[in-house]
Design a protein around this nucleic acid. Structure first.
Lengths: 246, 246
DNA sequence: CGGCGCATTGACTATTTTCAAAACTTGTGG
DNA sequence: CCACAAGTTTTGAAAATAGTCAATGCGCCG
């Protein structure tokens, strides 16, 4: 298998995004045994209350984290883009407090979390990279709280899209002026903490403003700067500039 | 200074709550140099965009994390109880994405984060305990998202109180059937993502239901079970049972 | 005792939800 | 190729929830 196509490449890249690593660490990660699996849309990678066994990476496709209330309300917590590492949040916890579910069909590579853990124990740079990735995810959860708690429905949707576009761009630093997200209105609603019907009305407005264009179960946007202005978007919480600790 | 009164005792306890430690690790932590400081109500421990220099512990008093939107909206992200460790979230990040502010007058003990970091590098149990503490905090952020995104205003307030009572009880496992929180209605509002006026109306309702009783800038509650039922509270997200990784 | 900050009240407004129905896509099988 | 079924999106109107504004009350501290 050529290096370029190694399924764990994106796992390594996800860790390296905010914390550099030696060639040796990189290849130690790539040498980890993993299992590759194709998952259908809506299938679960992990369920709330499960004992987490694996970490891994979304080789292709989109997914999201969510949790639900007793009365059935669903709340998305984050969106996983193709290439994103997942389940580092459960690395040392023994019952997952949330679920991870596929948003589209896609492939995942699974790594036994004990093996990753053992590797991290002997390689400080890997330990650190995992730690920093977890901290950056926590920062995104904090911004998500602010978004839902203190912004209008329009701003929430716009902010969500800005975050996704920025993360996407950080991963593939070529110039993209448009980007498509395969998300339904119901999923957007559960991400923003509003109803799907209201999402529809807001998207109509954003669309007449020329900020997004809509397809069935997908969303495309061209005027990222306009969305950012509307949403009060400031990407510093993503901690993408890795000026490391002195 | 007698051990019992060592200001860092609560720091060690915060780490040990979810991850055991040897006597040697414990005393290595207690040997860390620290500075003790009394802070007035509303003063900042850390400001958004600051470069974090210290970790530490709230020796006494209450505090909260928050962030703000450009238009001035403030959103609380978590509440720090007396004895809570803080700023582990910034341990390896170089610009804070949120602020920490005193809710009451209180004392803090500050530790240079580089020294804690160096210690963790040589003591895996400390590294792990810090990691697990960070993961547990992230789990609380996730529940906070669900709370604000998918529960009614009444449920949000009730849930908040349940979380605080449960955390308090985990720290001091003696039987408490009542507990007082020195929080204003404005702070509660910014925690729940609603307006202070609406908080007032909700507290009135909760109070006629016999679930809470109110003082000036404080809140006392006796019927924790009733609050829990109202709020759909399930403490498992706090990860307080430390059945560790096999 | 005065002033300040916080809490309360009431009337009004805005936003968002709810409910019900219709239109539209997409995929499937005859 | 068409008809049907299932899921998503759109629409409209009514209702509930939460926000705004302005005025008043209360308690604490100097």
């Amino acid at each position: 298998m050529p290096i370029a196509a190694h399924p764990l490449n994106s796992f390594v890249a996800a860790l390296e995004l905010r914390s550099p690593m030696s060639e040796s660490d990189r290849s130690a990660l790539l040498d980890l045994p993993f299992s590759l699996r194709t998952l259908e849309k809506s299938s679960y990678i992990l369920r709330e209350a499960d004992i987490p066994i694996n970490c891994g990476t979304l080789v292709s496709g989109y997914a999201f984290r969510h949790k639900t209330t007793y009365s059935g309300g669903r709340q998305l917590l984050s969106i996983l883009l193709p290439g994103d590492a997942f389940d580092l949040q459960n690395l040392y916890l023994n019952a997952s407090d949330h679920s991870i579910q596929m948003m589209t069909r896609g492939d995942v590579a699974l790594i036994d979390r004990r093996l990753l853990n053992d590797l991290a124990a002997t390689r400080p740079a890997i330990q650190l990279a995992i730690f920093i990735k977890v901290l950056a995810e926590a920062a995104m959860f904090r911004e998500w709280i602010l978004n839902i708690g203190r912004r209008s429905a329009e701003e929430r949707i716009a902010h969500l899209l800005c975050e996704i576009a920025t993360r996407q761009q950080a991963k593939e630093p070529r110039l993209i002026d448009t980007f498509q997200l395969p998300i339904s209105q119901e999923e957007l609603a559960d991400a923003a903490g509003i109803t799907p019907i209201h999402v529809g009305r807001i998207l109509k407005k954003l669309s007449t403003l020329g900020l997004v264009s809509r397809g069935r179960q997908s969303l495309e946007y061209s005027d990222l700067e306009g969305l950012g202005r509307l949403a009060d978007f400031n990407p510093s919480y993503l901690h993408l500039r890795h000026d490391r600790m002195p």
